[in-house]
Design a protein around this nucleic acid. Structure first.
Length: 877
RNA sequence: GCGGGCGUGGCGGAACCGGUAGACGCAACGGACUUAAAAUCCGUUGAGGGAAACCUCGUGGGGGUUCGAGUCCCUCCGCCCGCACCA
């Protein structure tokens, strides 16, 4: 026998008896096989029972599962198993978010085809996931890169296109000239491509857009009108900020003296949320991309040079923070709409964004930080028009700080004396009256660009024809399948689909002239925007079956990381609206309840040379860490999110090997509230293993108990104390699971176990009731152990099909309550009273208590506060 | 800069609606069993004082409301997250 084998065996043996203690390595696979054989978790529509759809965000098949996955799926599994036991028809599926760049990068590095790499990863991860013992209906599994999935995505896109949800338009993109691809903003680091390091260019490309801004108003409204009551406040807030609605005025400033700009214009349109400050206007500023700026740049080298300079300064956060407000004056002035004879200069300015509002503003330096900076730099007027409450109009002036608070208008003609809010309204009415503009609502949200110049994604079903323009691929020609390519094509930069004439060149479906396929593929966020509906109602002949989708949706409980709080969750909400409009389903809000779980963290380790070390290569002894191999000292670093770069990762597979799946599940849910980060420690996992063994040791001596005792009626001699503990635990654990307080549910189970162990003298009936409840209460957390215990006790069928225990109300009320008695707010004694005792009885008992008398000796009782069932407080002076 | 959250023993964390602060777990310490260790079981464990009974202090700091504050209000400090030149 090898040392390792010996060690492992010893782990599960006790010396005295030589008997095997609970051995998860044998027991866990046995029950997983049993669940499979029994098809225990297969789900179908069943209208006789209430449905419950629990879904965890599906994983990207990177190759290995990590503890973050385990935490996510363990939570969902607890809910799924709990809801099953509560009589719901539960849908709990799993699949793979399988398109995306990492597969192409792997192809570049290893020469493996993205498809082969992806499916191999799926196989490996599926095997690991299955070891966790999840109650999943694997028959519904798919990967988004399956043609059977993405062909229906193409169909949805065509439907959306027909229904007006799709638009093709030019837009600026981050273009990496070396990799010849578009980069997402997140992939641009300090103005350089994250992979190539090349300076990123801004390039105008025709791109496909989903017009999410059309739904901005409704997406926003649903956040606050109760439709998303089951979502965490912080996620709703993040979405609200992201959508970023602001109300204001869109208005035009006429050029003075009949001037005409090089592009033939006579006015410039701006957007403002502060029309009340119009009388304080000192300048107009337009974005470098603004048509007016571009028109001047075309004939004026200085303007052109300034614009180039603006574009050079990076788009990174740091660059924006540090960027100085800069402007370049255009040879044009505009007239003030209200003040005869006043004109305002027009600048191109680096801090104006073309993408927001009108791409142009009027600046009121007195009441805006940026405008003030700009005005001070270029020596423009600073005219205060909002007077802070209590300030004297004669002496109030603006120094280094603008005034942005409330107040009353002055220096403002017809607005004088109005509050800021009233003045905004009044100014808008006036501008509308003279035909110079209108009230306007703006959103920060931009339309969703879904084009990616990549191979490993769902092809966009469109064809470009010189005669007919862009035409949809006819539905009868779907799917547009990804063509076979040799893996070597990924070594050359650019989109491989561009270089495949045999695939790319097709006749136009309308006029039959030679045409080209769209070679862009969809952003992978498209794939993940409707997978939940496909799980519930997928069909071979349509994206989703409407009746089934309407039965299962919305997802009753969605669980995932908060990093998806904005993009994924917003896109999916939009997709549901589009799918409703195209009659694929009726639900608009796909996720009724959302839970965002915290991360799994671990201490980090560095050796003397500053190299990161894996936890498995470190030995901790008395708070000090050493290298396992050579004993050199190791520096214990901060506790951080597990990441490959810092090597503070622990492989779930190894932990399962060491402690079993139940112990991992138990520990990862026990230590922290689910929404917070949890620190993975080996000691904690070992502790969870101890608990698993302890439960088995508690249950095992009473094998067959469920056969020996009929639990349907308690005998007269049943022990009230243990029964009360049993039923109080049932009530508390039920509540805690319902409220996602897994850590508290687990603490309750520990307490109950402590009570159970001390109840040696308990009558066999009460003990059997307690054990039966215990096993069912732990089943969502430790499903394998629960099955083994259930079988040992002689329970009927599988515990995963057993009904959840219910608490008897009569056993939840206490016969007596212990009330603390305070004297002047300090606890001095306790009294035991009946819960129904009236205040005067309680007061008398409290005052009779010896300790109480001692503390009020010599004092006069001024007041006695009795809070029934809670506390007594005696005020004495 | 704007918005949100959090701060409780050596550690993770409990504490319903303002009512016994520290449940439960981890770690540590003591004991039993053992030739010994591991495992297991029993016990102790917020700080200070006291022989003990007990007493005092204690939820980031300061102040307030209240019979009573971890919880509510004001203020300061620290940490975390989101957004960010959004007009």
């Amino acid at each position: 026998m090898t040392m390792a084998a010996l060690k492992t065996r010893r782990f599960f043996l006790t010396k005295e008896t030589g008997m095997a203690r609970y051995n998860p390595k044998e027991i866990e696979p046995k029950w997983r096989k049993r669940w499979d054989d029994d098809k225990a978790f297969l789900t179908s529509v069943d209208r006789s029972r209430p449905k419950y759809y629990v879904l965890e965000m599906f994983p990207y098949p990177s190759g290995r599962i990590h503890l973050g996955h385990v935490r996510n799926y363990a939570m969902g599994d607890v809910i799924a198993r709990f809801k099953r036991a509560r009589g719901f028809n539960v849908l709990h599926p799993m699949g793979w978010d399988a398109f995306g760049l990492p597969a192409e990068n792997a192809a570049m590095q290893t020469g493996a085809h993205p498809r082969d790499w992806t499916y191999a990863n799926i196989e490996a991860m599926k095997r690991e996931l299955k070891q966790i013992g999840l109650a999943i209906d694997w028959s519904k599994e798919f990967a988004t890169c399956d043609v059977r999935y993405y062909r229906w995505q193409q169909k949805l896109f065509l439907d959306f296109w027909k229904a007006g949800f799709v638009e093709r338009r030019e837009s600026y993109v981050n273009w990496d000239p070396v990799d010849m691809t578009v980069l997402a903003n997140e992939q641009v680091i300090d103005g350089k491509g994250w992979r190539s390091g090349a300076a990123v260019e801004r390039k105008k490309l025709s791109q496909w857009f989903l017009k999410i801004t059309d739904k901005a108003e409704d997406l926003l409204a649903a956040l606050d009108d109760g439709r998303l009551a089951g979502w965490p406040d912080n996620v709703r807030l993040m979405q609200r900020n992201w959508i970023g609605k602001s109300k204001g005025l869109q208005m035009k400033f006429r050029f003075a003296g009949g001037m005409i700009s090089p592009d033939g214009g006579r006015e410039v349109e701006i957007y403002t949320t502060r029309p009340d400050t119009l009388f304080g206007a000192a300048f107009i500023a337009v974005a470098p991309d603004h048509p007016l700026a571009q028109a001047y740049a075309a004939r004026d080298k200085a303007v052109a040079a300034f614009i180039v300079e603006c574009q050079k300064s990076g788009t990174s956060q740091e660059a924006i923070d540090k960027a100085e407000k800069k402007g370049h004056r255009l040879p044009i002035v505009v007239v003030h709409p209200f003040v005869a004879g006043r004109t305002l200069p027009v600048y191109v300015a680096n801090f104006i964004l073309m993408g927001y509002g009108a791409g142009a503003i009027f600046g009121c330096p007195a009441h805006d930080r940026r405008d003030l900076d700009f005005a001070r730099k270029y020596g423009l007027d600073v005219i205060p028009v909002v007077l802070p409450p209590g300030e004297d109009p004669a002496s109030f002036s603006i120094g280094d700080e603008p005034y942005v608070g409330p107040g009353s208008l002055y220096n403002s003609g017809f607005l004088d004396g109005l509050s800021v809010d009233d003045a905004i309204e009044s100014a808008i009415r006036k501008i509308e009256g003279i035909g110079a503009g209108r009230a306007s609502t703006q959103f920060r949200l931009r339309d969703w660009g879904v084009s990616r110049q990549r191979y490993w994604g769902c092809p966009i079903p469109a064809i470009h024809c010189e005669n007919c323009g862009v035409v949809p691929v006819p539905e009868s020609d779907l799917p547009v399948e990804l063509p076979e390519v040799d893996a070597s094509v990924f070594k050359t930069p650019g989109n491989p689909l561009d270089g495949l004439p045999a695939w790319r060149d097709v006749p136009c479906p309308d006029c039959a002239a030679p045409a080209r396929r769209e070679t862009d593929t969809f952003d992978t966020f498209v794939d993940s925007s409707w997978y939940f509906a496909r799980f519930a109602a997928g069909r071979e002949d349509r994206p989703v079956d409407k009746a089934d989708a309407d039965y299962w949706l919305p997802v009753d409980q969605y669980i995932g990381g908060v990093e998806h709080a904005i993009l994924h969750l917003l896109y999916a909400r939009y997709f549901a609206r589009a799918m409703k409009a195209t009659e694929h389903m009726s639900v608009e809000e796909p996720f009724a309840n959302l839970f965002t779980q915290g991360m799994v963290t671990h201490a980090t380790y560095k050796d003397a040379k500053g190299r990161w070390l894996l936890p498995e290569d470190v030995v901790i002894d008395g708070g000090k860490a050493r290298r396992a191999d050579n004993g050199e000292p190791v520096v214990i670093g901060p506790i951080e999110k597990m990441s490959k770069s810092k090597k503070n990762v622990v492989s779930p597979e190894e932990i399962v090997e060491k402690y079993g799946a139940d112990a991992i599940r138990w520990f990862i849910l026990s230590d922290s509230p689910p929404e917070r980060d949890v620190e993975w420690t080996d000691a904690g996992a070992a502790g969870a293993w101890k608990l698993v063994a302890r439960i088995w040791d508690t249950v095992e001596p009473f094998a067959g108990a469920l056969k020996a005792h009929d639990l349907s009626m308690p005998p007269a001699a049943a022990e009230a104390g243990l029964r009360r503990a049993t039923h109080q635990t049932i009530a508390a654990v039920t509540d805690d699971i319902e409220e996602f307080r897994f850590n508290k549910a687990i603490a309750r189970i520990y307490e109950f176990l402590n009570v159970l162990k001390k109840a040696d003298a308990a009558d066999a009936w009460s003990r059997t009731e307690a054990l039966s409840a215990l096993v069912r209460l732990i089943a969502p957390f430790c499903p394998h152990l629960a099955e083994e215990c259930w079988a040992a006790l002689g329970g009927e069928g599988l515990v995963c099909n057993a009904v959840w225990p219910s608490a008897e109300a009569a056993l939840l009320v206490r016969e007596t309550v212990t009330l603390p008695v305070q004297v002047n707010g300090k606890r001095r004694a306790e009294i035991a009273v009946s819960p129904s005792a009236d205040a005067s009885t309680v007061e008398a008992l409290a005052l009779a208590e010896a300790e109480v008398r001692r503390h009020i000796g010599g004092l006069t009782v001024r007041k006695v506060v009795v809070v029934p069932g809670r506390i007594v407080n005696i005020v004495a002076t």
